[in-house]
């Protein structure tokens, strides 16, 4: 069992859980993920490790409530526990040792960018991070990222930071010159837009994919993605790939496989919660955050 030590709401539908997982905290590297299984009857879901403290034996998971399984997770409070946390899985991010990197985070993808930005900063790479949200309350992890370098926060409605999408900010940063590499994690349309923006200049762009997955060890093949015309497994060959080679349309299609199931599960859950008359954490009223940073 993995006891929850902290539950912190970062945005209207994004929550940070800090939990005990000593072995994973000890060896995890940026870019890696865990498979979380709340308990009997629960789904196994992949979540990127956002942060960790080897000394304290804890890891942080930043979770966007988009379906029943994530809604159940974000309600966990200190005193609760997660039955199974397996990992760390996936290949660690391949990071440079010098130069200037731009990290782009959209929505909950910002949590995946955080450990990358931290490690880049530790290695002495100049880091510019561009993060975005619908409005001020959707911008997450700004303080943590500011410790790694410059942060450009964007909001769609202009309520905070730079008005507009992250891709617009990225265009300006690239135009200013001196950029060696880009890391982009967020909704599929955002990653695709970033990859298209950097493709003409051949600017190396790494994206982190989060497809449907069961075991996380290469066994199910559910996470297969087409990269450079070949089928790869995000769980063992990724989750990070060269953004210029990823078939984003296929990724996006495959991610929609269980959408009807998710809606039905959420309705069932709402109904069960109603029956229990348990105070609701509020996580489920908000729709999933819309794809951010995408030119409409």
């Amino acid at each position: 069992m993995h006891p929850i030590l902290r539950n912190e709401r970062l945005s209207p539908n994004v929550t940070r859980l800090v939990l005990e997982a000593p072995r994973i905290a000890e060896i995890r590297q940026p870019g890696q993920f865990v498979i979380v299984h709340l308990g009997r009857g629960a789904e196994r879901i992949p979540l990127t490790i956002a942060d960790g403290d080897a000394g304290a034996g804890t890891i942080s998971l930043v979770i966007q409530s988009v379906g029943k399984s994530t809604a159940d997770l974000v309600e966990l409070q200190p005193g609760d526990a997660i039955a199974d946390v397996a990992g760390p899985l996936g290949r660690p991010t391949e990071l440079p040792d010098h130069g200037h990197a731009v990290c782009v985070g959209g929505g909950v993808g910002t949590a995946v960018i955080l450990p990358i930005a931290q490690e880049l900063h530790r290695r002495g790479v100049e880091v510019t991070t561009i993060i975005g949200g619908r409005s001020r309350e959707w911008v997450i992890l700004e303080d943590e990222l500011a410790a790694c370098g410059t942060v450009i926060a964007c909001t769609d409605d202009g309520s905070y930071g730079r008005p507009g999408f992250v891709t617009e900010a990225l265009a300006d940063v690239i135009a200013a010159g001196g950029i060696d590499e880009v890391f982009a994690v967020g909704p599929v349309p955002m990653m695709r837009a970033v990859a298209e923006m950097t493709r003409p200049a051949g600017l190396k762009t790494t994206v982190s994919l989060n497809p449907v997955m069961v075991d996380g060890t290469g066994m199910c093949g559910g996470c297969r993605v087409t990269v450079h015309g070949e089928t790869r497994y995000a769980c063992v060959d990724g989750p990070e790939f060269d953004g210029h080679d990823v078939d984003f349309r296929e990724l996006s299609d495959r991610l929609s496989t269980y959408r009807p199931f998710e809606q039905a599960a959420m309705e069932r859950r709402a109904c069960e919660i109603g029956l229990r008359t348990k105070p609701k954490a509020g996580a489920t009223e908000e729709a999933a955050e819309p794809a951010q940073g995408v030119p409409a």
Binding site: G41, A42, R44, V214, C220, G221, G222
Partner: peptide, 30 residues
């Protein structure tokens, strides 16, 4: 066409149904 939605490896299909109990309506695994 092997990556179309609705194409499973036997491993994935059977794991969802058996280990994850998707044959049972109470399971969260679709």
């Amino acid at each position: 066409g092997e990556n179309y939605k609705g194409v499973y490896s036997a491993n994935e299909y059977l794991t969802r149904v058996n280990l994850m109990g998707a044959w049972n309506a109470d399971s969260d695994t679709p």
